[in-house]
Design a protein around this nucleic acid. Structure first.
Lengths: 347, 347
DNA sequence: GTGAAAGCGCTAACAG
DNA sequence: CTGTTAGCGCTTTCAC
């Protein structure tokens, strides 16, 4: 039912025999219009099926009440949870959120940033796919408020809401050590990302604090994906001396790891202990249940929006705020090995 | 670093000593500009940090190259997967997608639709939270192409891409029957939704085809959520005669159901068989592995965008296309009961 | 209370 | 090849 062309404020004005200025007043509830006139206008709006054109409006007002959210992987359940937190707060303050997914592609990310800037979003919350990229330049130039979420953005002074990844990994590794493990492997994420690097650092720190020498063979790399965790676990399985415990750096990797364990018949909880970064749905369905490092997703999102909002409202420039939220170690069952003996070759 | 105010095409023109028309030609790669002039303009653009204002542009062009995607639950993994399919196709055709989440709230949905219309999206793909609502009126009036995805929209002639829910549920139930089950319970979703109703219909049809009388006690209701599945399962567990098999209508409900089974120590695969609608991550981590009805998420999304795109491009009005994709039954381990005896009181 | 008119930044004829 | 100009639909003074 393609109508001729959408009715404009002009049409409404004509229909109600008033000027467009008066119609505008009514549309925006500015008052100062005689009740009778208003009624006529409201009637005309209904009759014509008029809808205010937000594009034209933004053009005058120089604000869009839209904020962009850019995430790297919509299929990683972590992000939808964070997004919910942002949305919730944004809605309260009358902002509309546009969510975009880069699928970890710096190119796509760059395109999206450009589109958002062109469309004049009032601010953006981003978990970047490329910490060192130049794609943020334009945001900075245009003076658009940005909050970096979960992944640091180097060389730009944006606000940030991050997780203390070092601490999280440290706690997990420490827990494993206290359970008597010495041969602890880590499935690392890409070192090109803050979380990848930091979680490795936390692992290292725990080993060092408890004077356990680092065994290079127990450090395997992968992308933050199921496949990454799967193949890393296979690698680990082929070692002459297999680790007695595995720390996985990311939720998707954990899934891949557990799948591999099953496929390889490398018995979780009997032959190998496990702690993963991020809580996952399957954690309580495996046997034994998985111990994990859990992040406050909702809080992360809420805080991010709050910071963004403050900056949108602010007139002056002020220095960046950097928040570091603490993850929580959720000990379930997978981190100790019952009565099965550990290798302890080195002790 | 809030700049004075963003540079416009005017500023660029002045800076390069040309007219705005020429700048516009360069910006839009329309050619017909002397190389030397172009270079000067490009230089000016760089120098000033100019970015084309898409708001103003859309205002002239009457197209935004944006399509809106509205989903009811971003935390249900089904939707991100569908969204990926849409995004992928949209990107190929030069469209940018704005994703919005209604959290199953008709009110929020209505607001979002209004915002999208005001912003002049070229089309919208929607999985509605309210099949019978009036919120679509505005889309129809404005002649904005709409594709209903996964949930039918009644009383409006939009294109639709749905799943054959009846068939999916039928297959699942039939499978259970063929395994020898007679006491088959169904955990239903809300009857206010197409999937809720249709899946129940498929269940009914299978029972009827195999001449198994319907037992009202085996039909329990719940919302499409983990909680819904959990409490429904508890209800089932309290029956004097418990079912020997459960068909769960939705992925989240399946998770809740399995959790309840664990908590109640109602042994999956021994005391009760299970098939769920939608494949879920945990399906292969439970013991036994869960049999499920699986939907082609990606195909669903791709097709939806394709239909939308055709309509955006079309000038004439043509009648709605309705697609019904078939789900696939993935038989794993949870639908037979090994050598445990079935009730068979009625046989 | 209401209206006239000046743009917001851009595109697209239409002239040169 | 390049410039002039007329809007797109709306908000917002400034008059009446």
């Amino acid at each position: 039912m393609r109508t001729e062309s959408k009715p404009t404020i002009q049409d409404v004005a004509k229909h109600a025999s008033v000027s467009i200025a008066t119609v505008s007043r009514v549309i925006n509830n500015q008052g100062g219009v005689r009740a009778e006139t208003e009624k006529r206008i409201v009637h005309a709006i209904k009759e014509l099926g008029y809808v205010r054109n937000a594009v034209a409006r933004s053009m005058k007002k120089k604000e869009t009440k839209m904020i962009g959210i850019i995430i790297p992987d919509i299929n990683n359940p972590f992000f939808p949870l964070v997004v919910s937190g942002i949305e919730q707060q944004a809605r309260k303050k009358g902002y509309y959120t546009m969510l975009s997914n880069t699928s970890e592609s710096p190119i796509v990310e760059s395109e999206i940033i450009n589109i958002l800037v062109e469309r004049g979003v009032d601010g953006v919350v981003i978990t970047t796919a490329d910490e060192y990229g130049k794609q943020f330049q334009i945001l900075q130039e245009q003076g658009i408020p940005v909050v970096a979420l979960d992944r640091r953005i180097n060389e730009y002074n944006f606000d940030s809401v991050l997780i203390d990844n070092i601490d999280g990994a440290y706690q997990a590794t420490k827990q494993l050590i206290l359970q008597g493990h010495q041969d602890i492997a880590i499935i690392c994420g890409p070192h090109s990302t803050t979380p990848g690097r930091d979680r490795f650092a936390g692992y290292l720190k725990a080993l060092s604090d408890y004077e356990i020498p680092l065994n290079d063979q127990f450090v395997v790399q992968g992308s933050f994906s199921e496949e990454g965790g799967y193949s890393a676990t296979r690698t680990l399985n082929e070692l002459e001396v297999r680790p007695t415990a595995i720390f996985s750096s990311n939720n998707l990797m954990s899934i891949g790891c557990i799948k591999a364990l099953q496929d390889l018949e490398w018995r979780l909880g009997e032959e190998v202990a496990f702690i993963g970064f991020d809580d996952i749905e399957i954690a309580t369905f495996t046997k034994p249940k998985l111990s994990v490092v859990s992040r406050p997703m909702n809080a992360l999102g809420e805080l991010a929006f709050q910071l963004l909002h403050e900056r949108i409202l602010a007139n002056e420039v002020f220095s960046p705020r950097n928040y570091l939220l603490s993850p929580e170690l959720k000990i379930r069952e997978s981190c100790h090995l019952g009565n099965i003996r550990l290798n302890h070759k080195r002790s």
